[in-house]
Design a protein around this nucleic acid. Sequence first.
DNA 1: GTTCCGCATGAATCGATAG
DNA 2: ACTATCGATTCATGCGGAA
Lengths: 310, 310
Amino acid sequence: MTILDTKKEILTYKDSTSEFYLSDCLDALKKIKDNTVDLVITSPPYADQRKSTYGGIDPDRYVEWFLPITKELLRVLKPKGTFILNIKEKVLEGERHTYILNLILEMRKQGWLWTEEFIWHKKNCHPGKWPNRFRDAWERLLQFNKDRKFNMYQDAVKVPIGDWAKTRLKNLSETDMKRDNSRVGSGFGKRIANWVGKELVYPSNVLHLATESSNKNHSATFPMELPSWFIKLFTKEGDLVLDPFLGSGTTSVASALLERDSIGIEILPEYYEIAINRFKKNTQQRVNKIKIDLKLSAEEDFVNQLKLYG
Amino acid sequence: MTILDTKKEILTYKDSTSEFYLSDCLDALKKIKDNTVDLVITSPPYADQRKSTYGGIDPDRYVEWFLPITKELLRVLKPKGTFILNIKEKVLEGERHTYILNLILEMRKQGWLWTEEFIWHKKNCHPGKWPNRFRDAWERLLQFNKDRKFNMYQDAVKVPIGDWAKTRLKNLSETDMKRDNSRVGSGFGKRIANWVGKELVYPSNVLHLATESSNKNHSATFPMELPSWFIKLFTKEGDLVLDPFLGSGTTSVASALLERDSIGIEILPEYYEIAINRFKKNTQQRVNKIKIDLKLSAEEDFVNQLKLYG
DNA sequence: GTTCCGCATGAATCGATAG
DNA sequence: ACTATCGATTCATGCGGAA
């Protein structure tokens, strides 16, 4: 084993501050004070799955590897904060492995409450064919809390579709959507503006999102909408978001664009650099195109909502 | 406690035989021979949920109540057979209860393999609003097997939609679909005929189905498409399907229409009668309308596939 | 014979109130 | 205190009656 580089950088966007740790996860977590984080959201290395990049954790030892980390997360999370864990068990010898079941049971012994399990339905799941199973099109989004009372801002993720709007939407052909979408601020945008606020409903615990194929740099791509949705749901502006397995930095970017502070921890220098660069690019781009962004924002938001809650 | 009525009736449809037991589940199971069942599919009473009708099982005692039953199911299932368990944990004191996690772990100790977990996305989930959670829109469909090698007929549930058909479908307005659907054998039917065989894809492990509210007789309606889909996937004509918690008899009807034999067990006389009557009505109706059904079958099948894999 | 509209109906959960 | 019951909340679906 080589000795790991460690460093810390701080970037800002508008009023938000984003810290980046190049460090072992546990080491960096120990530098964070008790009860300071509003939301932890992460997609840890899946057992044995990303062996080539992360070293891979033996499925049978996954729980014992992860428990010290969840213990630290419990410590740094505010009493009314939330922990969202994106994970899916792998198949081993023809069976779904049980490490996630055991992880949930063990985390409850640590003091975590297992509040809810959201489903991420991956609309464009990985292709493939096996004689004894179909393609895996969903992942778990486990919600844990320290207390039955936690912060939840449901109105921030309301979905602008009722019966009436839905029928109209179905009657729009796909080419219509595309054409109008490209004409910024014109037809489609105006129509959306009419819908928004007319028929807002609360979403359910099933999210419909496509994986992002664009960022091939990091093997586990979780789409920007995923952290964005939970950040809007469980934090307000100025709150602090933590991702202990930052990867290519999706959580940091999502946090900054929503003007939340963030801490991201990544052990591999390659990914750390990718995360830093992506953050700079995305926030800078945002600043340069601020006028266009403002014009687009209503449409973008609507389209994102659609993608989330198809 | 009153002494329960017990009886057994046998009904037939085409070449298939359907047995109905009015009996305690365990008692009836013990009359079934070892290694004779090709598919067990059932939706047991959820913990504490149907208290008014089924007596309700205490969540903390759910596992110990269910394990003797799964032991019998393991005995009667053929080596290459499959057990599909439809279940969802309830919320207790703000947390998702862990009895299903424990059930899976305990069933593995009995010798079951936990092969897969399908998701049933309930499009019309129960409404409601709470300060700390969204509506629950999914249920588990746990797949268990006795052996890594099991029968699976994937081609039987192929979905007739590729990218090309998908795009065309989106461009069809809803009213177009309805209108053409009503003209039997005309436009829509022909178009389907063009698609079938052109773009067949395998489905994923996420099923999109609405619950059936039409059958008001039984509180827990699982939609006919659900057992139908798994029956097609895991059995062939003439095979034997078992539902130890028959309820209003959906599994028996689905089995008969697909010409599989079936055994259904129901402890409550009210539901037993409903199941018998529904079976008679559905199979009889089917026979009367056999010509129309044959004409419709291609379309019906397509529409059902659409509903399953939206 | 169709199509459209209105309405009842759920495998729910929380918090307040009552025993 | 601890348990049991009840009202409030909410929306996709399918049925029935009417145009």
